[in-house]
């Protein structure tokens, strides 16, 4: 089929495309309202920011084209950026898969419960993500540097530590605190879509599975539930990639900016530093473009992995 298409003359291909387009006019009309707004408020700003990344734009003066110098500076002259990449990877490797698997497991377990109880639990798990910045104060109390802070007191009472650990100031621990706090708020949109997706799996398939010799819930999960949820798994993966590679504001609020010796400094922290403190928008845009490329690559890898589910 693909071969035939290649052999088709250009003229014929244009003709066919035009015919398809004509047939799809009602569809174009349906997507038009959203797509026009999308172009104005999403695509255009993104393209502009991409252009900024090749300039020295500083918000006040008109932008001058500087070629690849922002990118060159990032990789050759900016040690903190290299630290940020390293930290982002460490945090994302734990928060990403951890949050993804945990939100799937919780959604799946909730589905085993009676409906009412399940709804309550869904809300409970989603609550920290919904409470927004208000939960940060709670984390600050839990991980308090004070020897009577929740975690320090608990560790002392259990006899694990003798002296208080400076969770929020010691460069050995700040990344860990950021990871834990991020996991705590990782039951977000992906989790909600898992909950809705699992409930939507057709009961008849479970019946058929039971007859076909599926013996326990793990087999049921692997052979029936997961393959039926591919769109949601994909959605959750995209959400996880974007959120785990954009961890940053949690660290800002908990351990301060910049973090002790840049121990939890992430790419997004670096971006915000240049984008909203120093106002070097050109440089910040270059960071944004690199982060964007990184996410695209991750997304491609994960899509490949997800294709293997249920086989």
């Amino acid at each position: 089929m693909a071969k035939n298409k290649n052999q088709m003359s250009l003229q014929r291909r244009v003709h066919l495309t035009l015919r398809d387009m004509k047939r799809s006019i009602p569809l174009y009309i349906m997507i038009a309202p959203f797509m026009i707004l999308f172009a104005i408020f999403v695509v255009y700003p993104v393209l502009t920011a991409m252009w900024y990344s090749f300039t020295d734009f500083n918000v006040l003066e008109p932008a001058n084209f500087v070629g690849l110098s922002n990118y060159r500076k990032l990789f050759l002259d900016d040690n903190i950026f290299i630290t940020a990449i390293k930290n982002t990877f460490i945090i994302a490797v734990i928060v990403g898969p951890g949050g993804y698997i945990l939100s799937f497991l919780l959604a799946w377990m909730i589905n085993e419960l009676p409906h009412k109880l399940g709804t309550v639990l869904t809300v409970i798990f989603y609550a920290p993500s919904m409470a927004g910045t208000a939960v940060i104060t709670v984390f600050a109390q839990i991980f308090s540097n004070d020897s009577n802070g929740y975690l320090n007191a608990a560790l002392r009472n259990l006899g694990i530590t003798k002296e208080a650990i400076l969770w929020l100031s010691d460069e050995k621990y700040v990344a860990l605190v950021v990871i834990l706090a991020s996991l705590w708020t990782s039951m977000g949109v992906g989790f909600l879509s898992f909950v809705a997706g699992i409930k939507g799996v057709d009961e008849a398939q479970y019946e058929a599975g039971a007859i076909d010799g599926i013996r326990n819930r793990w087999q049921e999960l692997w052979y029936i539930t997961l393959p039926n949820m591919k769109p949601q798994l994909l959605f959750g993966a995209v959400m996880t990639i974007t959120s785990s590679l954009s961890v940053g504001s949690v660290g800002d609020a908990l351990v301060g900016f910049p973090s002790p010796n840049y121990a939890s400094h992430t790419i997004v922290n670096h971006l915000n530093d240049y984008g909203s403190i120093r106002m070097e928008m050109g440089y910040a845009s270059a960071i944004a473009v690199l982060l964007f490329l990184l996410m695209i690559v991750c997304n491609m890898l994960i899509q490949k992995l997800l294709r293997k589910v249920g086989t």
């Binding site: 999308f38 502009t48 928008m281 845009s285």
Partner: peptide, 12 residues
């Protein structure tokens, strides 16, 4: 589009 950071698109 979900993957582009919002800080730098703020000004446009």
């Amino acid at each position: 589009s979900l993957m582009f950071n919002a800080t730098v698109t703020m000004i446009p």
